[in-house]
Simulated assay, not measured.
Amino acid sequence: MLKQKVIFCDFDGTITKNDNIVAIMKHFNPPGWEEIVNRLLQERAISVRQAVGEMFRLLPSSLQEEVVHFAISNAAIRDGFAEFVTYCKVNNIKLLVTSGGIDFFVYPLLQPFDIPRDDIFCNASSFDGETIEILWPHVCDNECVADCGMCKTTIIRSYPADQYERILIGDSITDFQGAKLVETVYARAQLIDLCQELDRPYHPFETFHDIIRDLEATTEA
């Protein structure tokens, strides 16, 4: 049986050229945010959900308009993404955006690409309290103990390997657990280092044109 390809594509640092959460924190620079990032990335002492939640709680909800405007205006889409979306549609490849990012910038930045909202998975947000609160509509299932916040492995497991050819595209620690599950990994930045640590095969990329060329070559082979 020919399996349908399904792609799980990260957003921050993958679809966009920069990490939007880090860019927000650097711009508004609330005291303590760098320590939180260090505890996540260097010490690996806290989960992604803890880190993201703690960082945004450093920002008052009164900054909502400024935070949203900065996040959307500062982001740049990686070269080739529009063509990549079209390539997936033409070749009947299911494209899911699996993002640890936040709804207030993920949805607006993806709006021009006509990706169905049901195929976009990200965290939500509330500006109702004194500080910005991140909400978690896609938490880990019973098979994941990583406390991801937006659990990519839970989504991947809903597409079983006996029915789908599963492909992950990502750049960071938030993609690492998913990279262990899928058949093919396209990696850049920190995800390359993490794959090398475990001797996990991957295809490096810098633009989505690179991924299109590789997928075409694989299909022809």
Rank of each mutant, 00 (worst) to 15 (best):
Q4L: 02
C9S: 15
T14I: 03
N38T: 08
F11T: 00
E43H: 13
P30M: 05
V48Q: 08
N18S: 10
V22E: 13
F8C: 01
I46H: 12
S47V: 04
M1T: 11
L40N: 06
Q64D: 08
K17V: 05
I24P: 02
V37Y: 11
A45R: 15
Q64N: 14
F56L: 06
Q64R: 15
A51R: 09
G32T: 05
Q4S: 13
N29S: 15
E35L: 12
N29Q: 09
G13L: 03
E54T: 04
E43M: 08
N18C: 01
A45M: 13
R57N: 15
V52I: 14
D19W: 01
W33T: 00
G32M: 06
G53F: 05
V48S: 12
P30C: 09
Q42T: 10
M1N: 12
I7H: 06
T16R: 06
F11R: 01
R44G: 02
M25L: 12
A23S: 15
V48E: 09
D12C: 10
R49E: 15
I24S: 03
N29H: 13
K5L: 00
R44S: 12
F56G: 01
V37F: 13
N38G: 08
S62Y: 04
E65R: 15
E34C: 03
L63C: 04
G13S: 05
I15C: 01
V52S: 04
V52F: 10
N38F: 09
K26N: 15
Q64W: 04
A51V: 02
P60G: 14
W33G: 00
I36A: 01
K3Y: 11
D12F: 03
V48F: 12
T14A: 01
L2W: 13
D19V: 01
M1Q: 13
G53L: 03
N20E: 08
Q4K: 15
I24D: 04
T14S: 04
P60I: 08
E54C: 03
L59C: 09
D19T: 01
T14C: 05
M1G: 14
T16W: 05
L41Y: 15
L40W: 12
P31C: 11
P30W: 06
N38W: 12
S47I: 07
P31L: 12
N20H: 04
E65L: 06
T16E: 02
H27G: 02
E34G: 04
L40K: 10
S62N: 09
T16K: 08
R49M: 13
E54P: 05
G32K: 05
L58H: 06
F28L: 04
T16F: 08
T14R: 04
G13D: 02
Q42G: 09
Q4N: 13
E54R: 11
F56H: 08
N20S: 14
S61C: 09
N20I: 13
M55G: 06
K5F: 01
A51T: 01
I7F: 06
